[in-house]
Every structure is written in C-alpha cells, then in structure tokens.
C-alpha cells in the first residue's frame, strides 16, 4: 500500500509562554491518505488548530514540538528554517479562518498571489499574473481581472475566502490545511465555499485536513472525522460511522447538541461542565469529570485509542 500523504505520530505541542507551560496537543497520531479529507473536530482549545499548524511549524517562538510528522515524504520536524519556508505553500498550504485578517490590507490581491507564486517558482511577473488570473477563474470570482487589482477591504468575506483558496492553491500543493475556513462566513456563503473546496480537492487529488467545531460541516466535507478533546484524539472513524454510531461519550454528547439530529426531543442534550485547564490536566481520561458514564477506573490512566467494531478507533475504557 502507498505511504500516507500525511503521517503524524505521537505529536505533542507545548507552549512555554506564561508562568506554566501549556500542553495544547498531547500525543496525537493521525494519518491522511492521498486524496482523502479528514476533519479534525473539537471545541475551542481542544488542540485541533494547533495540531494542524504544527504541520507547517507555524508556532510562536518558545514552542516545544515533539513526535514525528511526515508530509509527502518530508520530515517536517527535521527541516531547516530555509527548507520549511520552501515547504510552506509549495507542498502544504493553508486557508485561514478569517480571510479579512489573513490577507495583507495594503497589498492588492493580485500582488499577494503573484508574490506567493514567484516565491516558489521561477516565473516572471506577467506569467505569475496570468496564473493568478486563471486561479481566480478557477475559484469562480466574477470579473477576475478587475478583482486581482482590488484591495482586501473592497471585497466581501465570501469573495475573499475564494481568493484565499486561490492563493493556497497557487503553487500546486499536495496538501491543503483548512482552519475553520467557513466559520466567519454567512450560512449561505458557507455551503458554497465547502462545495468549492470539495470540488477542487477532488480535481487536484489533494489531501485535506479540515479543522472545524461544527459536526455538520465535518459531515459535509470529510471522508473521515477525528474528534479531539483536550489535546488528544478521542475517537476517529469514517463519517457515516461517527454520525450514526458514535462510540465515545464525548462524541455522543456533541451529536446530542445538534438541532437537526435531535429528533422529537424537546430539549437539546448539553455536555455539562467545561474542558479542563491545559496547564493542569487531570491524570486519567480528560473527559472523565464531565462524562455521564464515568467509572472509577477512568481517573487512573489515559485510555489508549483502540479499534472499534467498525474501521474506527476510540479512546474510552468502555470499549477497551
């Protein structure tokens, strides 16, 4: 079998700013095949974004990354500063949550895209501009030639996110990392952007990691879902399995909180309590304090990910 496009093995990320070190990611392992879309699902602070940004090593100084990450044959942790810069954008590129904040306000969109192209490829300004124009057509931005000459503040959020996607694809990367790319957009625009990403992913055979807190979005866009809680993956499996037959009590709780899945119940099920402090993690299962099915053994040790009856994995003592 072919090597997976992305292989994360026992990744831990610790931020050393502030008084206490904060362990944002705590032993995550994940692999993504060529042409596969994996959604990282979790609430704020679950470490989903941090996990994804580790793949580009986009963390502030003073962050400790341990574990191994392979992306398209590159050992990401071992790359030099120069090599990681060559890798970013060319092998793996990223779409940010807020396009309005993620684009430089004083450069035209065209300049920002041609800059990325000329950074990685030996192309003249005109050729790079031609490529940018083709990309704008590809992401279906109306009157692309004129739009390339506009500044970010002159465009709508949805159009900007299209431009951002065009920029991410400018150097034909193999991997696309999407950090909640639809969260900041209107609901109607959201679905268009999701469809666009899905379409481009299929056309270019991209491997995609799609970070979201919205299980509906994850189900829409992904082949597989990995659910994160307090810096760990607690459940992972094919979309259909996770939605129809969630195993982990946390995943079950997330699904219970969805309106469209609530059936005829009067109230939505909520998960009581709040996620644990990442600077002061409980000893056993991080979800135990909020779990409705908690047992005595849950507080003893972190449960490992084990195979389920289906093709997925779950980290819960009830299934060990």
């Amino acid at each position: 079998m072919m090597n997976p496009m992305i292989e994360i093995d026992n990744l831990s990320v610790t931020f050393n700013r502030g008084r206490k070190p904060v362990q944002a990611v705590n032993g995550v392992s994940l692999s993504v095949k060529t042409g596969e879309v994996v959604a990282l699902l979790g609430e704020s602070g679950s470490g989903k974004s941090v996990t994804m940004r580790s793949l580009l090593r986009l963390h502030p100084k003073g962050t400790t990354i341990t574990g191994r990450m392979q992306v398209a044959g590159h050992d990401v942790t071992a790359l030099s500063a120069r090599q990681i810069a060559d890798f970013r954008g060319a092998v793996a590129s990223m779409v940010f949550q807020e396009p309005r904040l993620a684009l430089d306000p004083v450069y035209t969109l065209g300049d920002q895209i041609t800059e990325a192209i000329m950074r990685h490829e030996k192309l003249g300004r005109n050729e790079a501009f031609e490529r940018a124009l083709a990309l704008f057509e590809k992401v279906r931005i109306p009157s692309p030639e004129r739009r390339l000459k506009t500044y970010p503040h002159e465009m709508s959020g949805g159009m900007l996110q299209r431009a951002m996607i065009a920029m991410a694809l400018a150097c034909n990367p193999r991997v696309l990392l999407a950090d909640e790319p639809t969260t900041a957009l209107d609901a109607t625009v959201q679905i268009q952007i999701l469809l666009l990403i899905r379409e481009l992913q299929a056309e270019y055979g991209l491997s995609v990691i799609f970070v979201t807190h919205d299980i509906g979005v994850a189900a829409e866009v992904a082949d597989r879902i990995a659910v994160m809680y307090a810096g760990r993956i607690v459940e992972e499996g094919a979309v259909a399995d996770i939605i129809r037959n969630p195993q982990h009590p946390y995943t079950q709780g997330l699904l219970g909180a969805r309106v469209e899945l609530a059936g005829h119940r009067d109230r939505l099920v909520t998960i009581p309590g709040a996620p644990p402090d990442l600077a002061d993690m409980p000893k056993g299962c991080a979800f135990a304090p909020r779990c409705v099915r908690v047992m005595e053994a849950c507080g003893q040790a972190v449960p490992p990910l084990t195979g389920t009856k289906g093709a997925g994995q779950v980290a819960c003592l009830h299934y060990a």
């Binding site: 580009l56 986009l58 120069r82 810069a85 060559d86 890798f87 970013r88 954008g89 060319a90 590129s93 990223m94 940010f96 807020e98 904040l101 993620a102 684009l103 430089d104 306000p105 004083v106 450069y107 800059e115 990325a116 950074r119 990685h120 920029m167 991410a168 400018a170 150097c171």
Partner: peptide
C-alpha cells in the same frame, strides 16, 4: 501579531520578505 503575518509565513515567505510587508503596513 496579526493573522496576516502568519498567513505570509504559511505561503512560504522568508522573514525578510515578511518584514517588507510589515514596513509597508507601518509606513502610513
């Protein structure tokens, strides 16, 4: 500290090129 400097790094720009963006943003 703004998102876009991280986005510039994410498209592979070198520190020197990112600082050029910073200067242009600071200039006005």
């Amino acid at each position: 500290s703004q998102d876009f400097t991280q986005a510039l790094a994410a498209k592979g720009l070198m520190t020197r090129q990112i600082l050029r963006h910073v200067i242009r943003n600071a200039a006005p």
